[in-house]
C-alpha cells in the first residue's frame, strides 16, 4: 500500500508541486493549508510522513510538530520541515519541537523524493 504523505503549506503552489512530485513517486498525498487543519487530518487518518511549512496562519509549522509529537500515534512518525535558506533559527526551533529533518526551499523534485524515501523506507 502506498505510503501516505501529509503536505502542509499555506501556499497552494507549494502543495500542488509537492503533491505532483510525490504522487509520481508512488506516494499518496493529502494536503492541509495550515497547522490546525493538518492536525485534524492527521488525527482523522493515519499518515506515514509529514512535510510541513513553517510560516502558516492559525497554527504554524513548529506548533504543529509539537502537537503531533504529543499524539501517541505520531511520536515516531518522520516529520520534515520546509524552510527557506538561512533559516537556521527555524531549523533549531524545528528540531527542538521534535522534527525529524528539514528541506530547504527551493527544492528539486529529485531531492524531495530522495529525502522522503530516506525517512520513509
Amino acid at each position: 500500500m502506498a505510503k501516505r504523505v501529509l503536505a502542509v503549506d499555506d501556499s497552494k503552489t507549494m502543495r500542488d508541486m509537492v503533491n505532483f512530485t510525490l504522487k509520481n513517486a508512488g506516494y499518496e498525498v493529502i494536503e492541509a493549508e495550515d497547522g490546525l487543519k493538518a492536525l485534524a487530518l492527521a488525527k482523522a487518518q493515519s499518515v506515514d510522513v509529514i512535510l510541513t511549512d513553517i510560516n502558516m496562519p492559525n497554527m504554524d509549522g513548529i506548533s504543529l510538530v509539537k502537537e503531533l509529537r504529543a499524539q501517541p500515534q505520531y511520536r515516531s512518525t518522520p516529520i520534515l520541515i520546509l524552510t527557506t535558506e538561512g533559516g537556521d533559527d527555524k531549523k533549531a526551533a524545528g528540531r527542538a519541537a521534535g522534527a525529524t529533518g528539514w528541506i530547504v526551499k527551493p527544492f528539486s523534485p529529485d531531492k524531495l523524493i530522495a529525502v522522503i524515501n530516506k525517512v520513509c523506507p
Binding site: 502537537e67 528540531r95 521534535g98 529533518g101 528541506i103 530547504v104 527544492f107
Partner: peptide, 15 residues
C-alpha cells in the same frame, strides 16, 4: 545544505 535529518532526534518535549 538543501535538506537534513537529525539522526538522533532531540527528546520530544511532552505537550
Amino acid at each position: 545544505e538543501a535538506f537534513g535529518l537529525w539522526l538522533e532526534p532531540s527528546e520530544v518535549p511532552s505537550a
